[in-house]
């Protein structure tokens, strides 16, 4: 039982972190807690400083608006934290959409979904085009364009401020991932993940592979939502350095050979 549980240690920890953040946001609105006020686009922490979503702020800047210093500092903290320290861990440790798309990926693996991407093939790089498009549209339309349709924003806002349409959006993403494209939303479309991929190349926290221990069972590749980052598995020892790695730790916990581990610096 314990060994079984340890195969999900990071997964459980991630779910705890994701849900705790949502509960703190929710409690701020419901009971006036001051730990984390706002939502994932901008949050006030402990009533003293702000954290801000860099992509949302980039879009606001693209509309030609000057943003306050408080928010810029909040962006800087986030960019340093994810970009230089923990990588694209927002996607797997914070974002609530991750719970939905992980579930779809799990069901797909169990054989309930569509197999082999018959209907739609999209390049992983599409998210960077969506990101570019978000900035162009913000410039042209004078409003942060992705924030209007961002399922992360819609979901978190509705969890905090009351439900509306978000369930529909989540079901749509779930079905898309399950029946149309494997890791479809988080792995191909979402520009927030794309943005963090772009800035995470030089992060300190990385997954490290010791190839001597690796038996090339490829268990890690079956659970990884960004398989292309595991290119070195079975070939040579080294760090998983690509920015697209979300540091979710699934590869580490499923590895029977103890060949993978987190490495800080």
């Amino acid at each position: 039982m314990m060994s079984n549980l340890s195969k999900y240690r990071y997964l459980i920890l991630r779910r705890i972190v994701q849900i705790t953040i949502l509960v703190l946001f929710w409690g701020a609105n419901r009971y006036g807690w001051k730990v984390l006020v706002g939502n994932l686009s901008t949050a006030k922490v402990l009533d003293s400083f702000y954290l801000a979503d860099p992509l949302a702020v980039l879009q606001i800047l693209a509309t030609g608006t000057i943003i306050s210093l408080d928010i810029l500092i909040g962006v800087l903290i986030i960019v340093i934290f994810y970009g230089l320290i923990t990588g694209r861990s927002f996607c797997s440790w914070v974002c609530p959409i991750n719970i939905v798309t992980d579930s779809a990926a799990w069901l797909r693996k169990k054989g309930y979904g569509e197999k082999g991407n018959k209907y739609l093939k999209l390049p992983k790089s599409m998210r960077y085009y969506v990101l570019g498009l978000a900035l162009i549209l913000s410039l042209v339309l004078g409003v942060a364009a992705y924030e209007v349709i961002n399922p992360i924003g819609i979901t978190v806002r509705e969890i905090v401020f009351g439900f509306g349409i978000s369930a529909t959006v989540l079901i749509l993403i779930f079905l898309f991932d399950l029946f149309v494209l494997k890791n479809g939303f988080c792995g191909h479309i979402c520009p927030v993940g794309g943005f963090y991929s772009l800035i995470s190349k030089f992060r300190l926290l990385k997954v490290h592979l010791e190839n001597d221990k690796c038996t090339s069972c490829m268990d890690c590749k079956t659970v990884c939502p960004e398989v292309q980052v595991l290119g070195i598995v079975g070939k040579k020892s080294g760090d998983i350095s690509q920015g697209a790695c979300t540091n979710c730790g699934r590869c580490i916990e499923v590895c029977e050979d103890d060949a993978l581990r987190f490495k800080f610096f």
Binding site: G32, G38, T42, A43, I60, I67, G142, V143
Partner: peptide, 13 residues
């Protein structure tokens, strides 16, 4: 307003 609002909802809270 639609340009600059970051949709944090703190005013609502």
């Amino acid at each position: 307003f639609v340009e600059s609002c970051i949709k944090c909802g703190i005013c609502v809270e």
